[in-house]
């Protein structure tokens, strides 16, 4: 497993990183390297240069302010899964990050790399969608913000331009009466999500549902939101029966199949895991 030749840059600021990307159209950002390096070793990717953003301070750290949680792009899964701030403000993200790969992967892989890579079977995109995350991006033309729902464009394709870097993920902190859950069906070979269901529900004092979201990894070319099924729960008592009837007609558009699981079976998994995620989220709300 020997990659092709490449140059290596290690900028110390976002600005510098963005400039290197602008100057080198065949360059690629290197974060945790746990998706990029394997494809380079298989020679499925051969970037002329790597821009290692791992030492840029501005991309590190987790903070909470003004009702939102901010996570630097280079924060690892392990930090996210174990962060008291994330557990309090966005427990769904901590739960999903904690189910990624194995310990070694969790110590290297980053939230920014995971979302930017946009592998449909990875674990964080559905959580980002379900939580209504905002992704902050910096490029040579300046900075901008993209909502998670606009970020995932297609299979391994995001709204990022070639010279842009995802710098920070911002998530509105969970309010009172909110519960969430991430339920994953592991692909037996890769360990990625054959299907991963991320659910968030909010209940009022009387127990009736005031808001719900349900998103899936692994079923289509991008993480998807089952918005109809989720919104049909609003106003319900979130009983098992209500959940089952909300999901009974659910069909994920453009579900994809492969040699391990057909599109139809992925739909079944989405219903089964979606129901389980919603029930758990309800019990936690």
């Amino acid at each position: 497993m020997y990659p092709s030749k490449f140059d290596y840059h290690r900028p110390s600021s976002v600005q510098e990183a963005v400039q290197i990307l602008a100057d080198n159209p065949d360059a690629k950002v290197l974060a945790g390297g746990h998706s990029l390096i394997p494809v380079m070793k298989l020679r499925l990717a051969a970037p002329a240069a790597l821009v290692d953003i791992g030492r840029i301070d501005a991309l590190q750290g987790i903070s909470r302010s003004n009702g939102s949680l901010r996570i630097g792009a280079c924060v690892t899964y392990n930090e996210i899964a174990n962060s008291a701030d994330v557990q309090a403000a966005a427990p769904l993200l901590a739960e999903a990050a904690g189910q990624i790969g194995d310990r070694q992967v969790r110590y290297r892989g980053t939230i920014g790399g995971n979302l930017s890579h946009a592998d449909p079977a990875s674990d964080l995109p559905a959580a980002a969608l379900a939580l209504g995350a905002t992704l902050h991006v910096a490029g040579s033309g300046g900075s901008r913000s993209v909502s998670a729902s606009d970020f995932f464009v297609d299979l391994m394709m995001t709204a990022l331009q070639a010279d842009e870097i995802l710098t920070e993920v911002e998530i509105p902190a969970a309010g009172a009466g909110t519960g969430s859950a991430y339920v994953k069906f592991e692909h037996p070979a890769s360990g990625y999500a054959l299907c991963g269901a991320a659910a968030v529900v909010t209940r009022d004092a009387g127990g009736s549902c005031t808001g719900a979201s349900l998103c899936f990894n692994g079923v289509s070319a991008t993480a998807v939101s089952a918005a109809d099924a989720a919104s049909s729960l609003v106003g319900s008592d979130l009983s098992d029966g209500a959940i089952d009837s909300a999901l009974s007609g659910m069909s994920i558009p453009d579900a994809t199949g492969d040699m391990f699981a057909s599109a139809g079976y992925r739909q079944e998994l989405a219903r089964a895991l979606g129901a389980q995620a919603l029930r758990t989220a309800r019990d936690r709300a």
Binding site: L42, H187, P188, A189, S190, G191, M259, F260
Partner: peptide, 13 residues
């Protein structure tokens, strides 16, 4: 061969 890597060929863990 479609199952040509460890991403596709499931050795038990």
């Amino acid at each position: 061969l479609l199952s040509g890597t460890m991403l596709d060929y499931a050795v038990p863990k």
